[in-house]
Design a protein around this nucleic acid. Structure first.
Length: 650
DNA sequence: TTTAGGG
DNA sequence: CCCTAAA
């Protein structure tokens, strides 16, 4: 990767870096407790400068702490030596400053100002030397240690955690709250044997603690997991050393004061959470934690897709581990669960590729749908909230499924394209909650049961049933069995078997059409069309035109409801899209009747010119006649072109 | 949920 | 057709 570059440091760090004595800083409460405000950037291999992540920020801090504790290997200073780039410091600084906006630590910026202000009160002589040092370091390209191309490996020297993907190597204490993100990454790697790029501490902590909790190894060792902390009993002092390094060196009251002043800062990222060790601060840091957690939640929400990706990668392993743990703990009385994960196989399900695997669960061989990162719509806002208001344990998805199946007005499908969407909803929160779902009957299992249990799919003779959305991941399925009464367990398993069966059937059915899982499918005419594309028939187009003429373009749901009531596979969006295409076609064709016309009927159905004319006419009319509800918008972009061309044409 | 628009 | 942002 790149080289970690220091751009801006706070007082303490700079003190150290300038060689100014450590003892002073150790005895000076303020400076010690001030969070490190390094602005770090990473120098990518290609010379780009990218904002450093929180973990890199914190790593510096951890180094300092390590130094104090004198118990950890001090990292190679070259790793964090300040250095901007070979292109020169000034441009680099400018770039960095512009990058500051990208950093999530705007608050920290303000905080550093505060700190600097305080610094000039308290230790005025230091400020110039600090900035000087900072500048010098920034400008000294020679100090760049490009040798450390692998930050992970390099960082491992500074970490108490090994990078080996071996859980047994996780010795000593692990206080997840205190770990930097990089350390968390390493712990994650050691726990799950894979890397992660998730930057969210809460998430990482949760995953790690969950993974460790469910690992068989953890019970063998003397780890104690408590509130995101994984500690080994006999090493508690060590963890205290790390954790309380701030608090021990200074009066609590002072720290409290500082916390107050830093209340708005995102110090949570750089200062270890001290809630547990300093209950006296709870009244203060309690709300603060709330804020920071909310901030963290905000950060979490953004990269949802990433989360899903990460999760879907982790899930198999983790669920497996969890299952093993389950088998272990459920040794007394309940069925012993063994998990043999057989090779994953792909099943084509209505054009969607569904990955299933055969799990032997309690002696039953069940085909577990394990769709990875398929959820493409927005994540449910608060799944648990839904559950709360739905005590039956049936989630919305299940409701939907139930409704769909109860509704036999389902149009038949002759193209064997029942679109069953198995969508995996797997936000971390979701997973977390699911694990401790106390309601017994799980949502996912219920939904699956409802969806596939004793119903068979509606006959396929004409239209596709495209409404099913079942959220389902193997993890979820497994979770459902936790705390579920034995009876229900069997039921669920049975249902799951049925599910697998049906899925197989659907697989065979749909695979008759095409042999691959690609979304596109070849058409007899030689082109390719989307798998679920349904060619618009002339009557449909005419209906659409008619609908637009009577209800106006834009009232797609109305048109859909009134004109396309029997065409359940046409959504209002489809109508809209089709209208858009028609419009385009009408524009392309009518003005000059140029060469486009002949070339047009290559793949798709040629739309009769009269219809196109009507489309254009309608568009024109709507642009003129409907000034009230769509005038500005419609007259805006495409219709205006219509107008222009129309006039030109006339 | 629906609409509008980009991909 | 799919996805998503707004409303």
């Amino acid at each position: 990767m790149g080289t970690v570059v220091e751009v801006e440091g706070n007082d303490e760090a700079k003190l150290k870096e300038c060689g100014i004595n450590n003892s002073t800083s150790l005895s000076s409460p303020k400076q010690i407790s001030d969070p490190v405000v390094y602005k770090l950037v990473r120098l990518e291999g290609d010379g780009r400068i990218v904002p450093a992540t929180d973990d890199e920020l914190i790593e510096v801090e951890s180094l300092l702490i390590d130094e104090k504790c004198e118990m950890h290997v001090v990292a190679d200073p070259g790793q964090t030596v300040g250095c901007i780039s070979n292109e020169g410091s000034s441009t680099g600084i400018a770039q960095l400053e512009s990058l500051e906006g990208l950093l999530q630590s705007r608050n920290k910026e303000a905080g550093s100002d505060k700190l600097n202000a305080r610094l000039e009160e308290t230790v005025p002589s230091l400020a110039p030397s600090l900035s000087e040092s900072h500048f010098n370091q920034s400008g000294s390209a020679g100090e760049c240690s490009h040798s450390s191309d692998n930050p992970v490996a390099a960082g491992s020297t500074s970490s108490a955690v090994t990078t080996k993907p071996d859980f047994s190597k996780l010795k000593g204490e692990i206080c997840l709250d205190n770990l930097s993100i990089k350390e968390l990454h390493e712990t994650f790697k050691a726990t799950f044997g894979r890397e992660t790029t998730v930057k969210d501490k809460q998430w990482l902590k949760r995953r790690i603690s969950m993974g460790l909790t469910n690992s068989c190894d953890v019970s063998v060792t003397s780890f104690i997991i408590k509130d995101n902390k994984l500690v080994k009993k006999e090493n508690e002092e060590i963890s205290n050393c790390m954790d309380g390094s701030y608090a021990e060196d200074q009066p609590i009251g002072n720290q409290k004061d500082l916390l107050t002043s830093l209340n708005q800062l995102d110090y949570h990222q750089v200062v270890p959470e001290k809630r547990l060790e300093n209950p006296s601060l709870d009244d203060n840091s309690g709300s603060d934690d709330h804020q920071t957690e909310q901030r963290a939640a905000k950060r979490v929400r953004k990269p949802t897709k990433r989360y899903i990706e990460e999760l879907s990668e982790v899930e198999p392993k983790e669920s497996n581990g969890r299952l093993m743990n389950l088998a272990k703990t459920s040794g007394h009385g309940l069925i012993s669960l063994k998990s043999h994960v057989r090779p994953v196989r792909n099943v084509i399900l209505g054009g969607r590729t569904v990955v299933t695997r055969l799990d032997s669960l309690g002696g039953y061989g069940i085909e577990v749908p394990c769709v990875s990162r398929v959820r493409r719509s927005r994540p449910r806002k608060n799944f648990m909230a839904l559950l709360k208001f739905n005590p039956s344990g049936m989630g919305t998805e299940a409701m939907l499924v139930k409704k769909v199946h109860g509704d036999h007005s389902f149009p038949p499908d002759d193209e064997k394209e029942s679109r069953v969407f198995l969508k995996a909803n797997s936000t971390p929160e979701h997973v977390h909650h699911q694990k401790f779902n106390p309601s017994g009957t799980g949502t996912e299992a219920t939904s699956i049961k409802k969806a596939f249990g004793d119903h068979s799919f509606p006959p396929d003779d004409g239209k596709e049933s495209r409404v099913l959305k079942v959220i389902s991941t193997p993890e979820h399925v497994h979770h459902q069995f936790i705390g579920v009464p034995e009876k229900d367990k069997q039921f669920s398993v049975m249902s799951a078997i049925g599910l697998g069966h049906n899925m197989e059937l659907k697989c065979m059915n749909s695979s008759g059409d095409s042999d691959d899982n690609v979304v596109t499918v070849p058409t007899p005419k030689g082109g390719i069309r989307r798998k679920h594309h349904r060619a618009w028939t002339l009557s449909e187009v005419m209906k659409l035109v008619e609908g637009v003429s009577s209800y106006g373009a834009g009232r797609w749901s109305e048109i859909k409801r009134l004109e396309f009531a029997s065409y359940s596979y046409r959504t209002s969006v489809d109508l809209k899209d089709k209208w858009r295409n028609l419009l385009k076609a009408s524009l392309a064709q009518t003005p000059q009747d140029n060469g486009m016309n002949s070339r047009k009927n290559t793949g798709a159905m040629p739309i009769p010119t009269p219809i196109l004319l009507k489309v254009r006419e309608l568009a024109e009319m709507q642009a003129q006649v409907l000034p009230n509800l769509s005038s500005t918008k419609i007259a805006g972009s495409p219709r205006k072109n219509v107008h222009e061309k129309q006039t030109g044409f006339l």
